[in-house]
Nucleic acid binder design. Structure first.
Lengths: 204, 204
DNA sequence: CTAAAAGTGGACTAATCAGTCCAGTCATAG
DNA sequence: CTATGACTGGACTGATTAGTCCACTTTTAG
């Protein structure tokens, strides 16, 4: 009732405050999970107050929805920058290397920010829908990349690019989960290599 | 200090009480996650009292360790019963079907009980180690199955069965995560099919 | 200028949580 | 039988939590 609905006015200052809250919440959730992130911690990290938070969000669940959306934009932006210029299998393997390197840089901690949200929120309808959309957009990015490879190589063999994108994403998520558990990028490398070999076999 | 250490006496009644607590906690954690499972809820579900819980466990973290171990035994027992009698690729595909069917029966909810624990506990050293051991045992089960297939088929081609087990497990985990998000077994089926095709290519 | 609305600060509440404590019951070894 | 220790019931505490409320300041529209 006290929360911002669609179309409600928002001054520049208001927008900035809201953004500060979402940014701080996203960072805390990525580091500690939804359940282990208290609103008080968000307020402290964003230098705001209770009344501000409840001015812009109906409740914690509402804030979590905003966090999912922001995290989605962050993750997709990272991959989009790599996948946009994709036009060969070698480029896909460079993407693989970048993903592995990113995981290595954080010592394999945290896993995928979106994947982690799934196991915590997948039983709540609205968050689950949002995450499903995020993965769909991620797959679309991969499909676009595959198509670019196909176009460049000339051989437009008939195969389901969407299915390929799904298995690549599954390999990525599964690989990251095992990497997070073992604190080694080995499983991630093997899983992505398998998936990319599959792409090569289907595409070429 | 008040908890049960290794070697401490445990009567039959005590063992039963401890088991009841772990069983209830495991079920609640599987359904709602560690952070969303309160000790009071565990007590209510197991029909025990605070003093009993703290008689057998040092604190909540200690109970969580027991939950990880019990959940590991449950999951591995399920897969062991399928993988033990493995001696052909057809058998491996039947295992795939069983995994898919199991996911379908719960409407893809919950994902893998061990995988879900990872994203919630992977940043705590001891739980993470335990989960890493669980996955290592799971991979060993797969390796044993692959070896049985290799022996039966006669062709003992030289390939790294451990790597194969890792990618199959990664495909399973990633597939389950996407299945949980989309509420469809499609991603799980595709990911497992890809991994098993890989096994076939490497093994035969 | 001025009034209405947007935005803010922080005290407060009620519920829930992990963990403590102690008085007691039960089982069993000697 | 009896004493020791395993086992149990549940009240209690202090900390933390999400969420409420109201007085106040700042911005904006007319």
């Amino acid at each position: 009732m006290a929360s911002i609905e669609i179309g409600q006015p928002l001054t520049a200052r208001g927008k900035a405050t809201r953004a500060r809250i979402v940014e701080a919440a996203t960072e805390l959730v990525r580091a500690h999970g939804v359940a282990n992130t208290s609103l008080d911690a968000v307020l402290a990290a964003s230098d705001t107050s209770k009344s501000q938070l409840y001015h812009y969000f109906a409740d914690k669940d509402d804030l979590v929805l905003a966090v999912i959306q922001r995290q989605t934009e962050c993750v997709l932006a990272t991959h989009e920058s790599h996948l946009r210029k994709l036009h060969s299998l070698a480029g896909l393997r460079r993407w693989r290397d970048a993903v592995v390197e990113l995981s290595r840089q954080t010592d394999c901690a945290g896993g995928c920010p979106l994947g982690s949200l799934v196991s915590e929120l997948a039983e709540s309808p609205r968050p689950r829908e949002l995450l499903a959309e995020s993965f769909a957009r991620w797959e679309a990015l991969l499909v676009a990349g595959f198509r670019a490879i196909q176009v460049r190589s000339g051989t437009s063999r008939d195969c389901d690019l969407t299915e390929l994108a799904t298995v690549v994403l599954a390999a990525l998520q599964g690989g990251l989960l095992l990497a997070q558990t073992t604190r080694s990028t080995r499983a991630l490398e093997l899983a992505l290599d398998m998936a990319i070999d599959r792409v090569e076999a289907q595409l070429a």
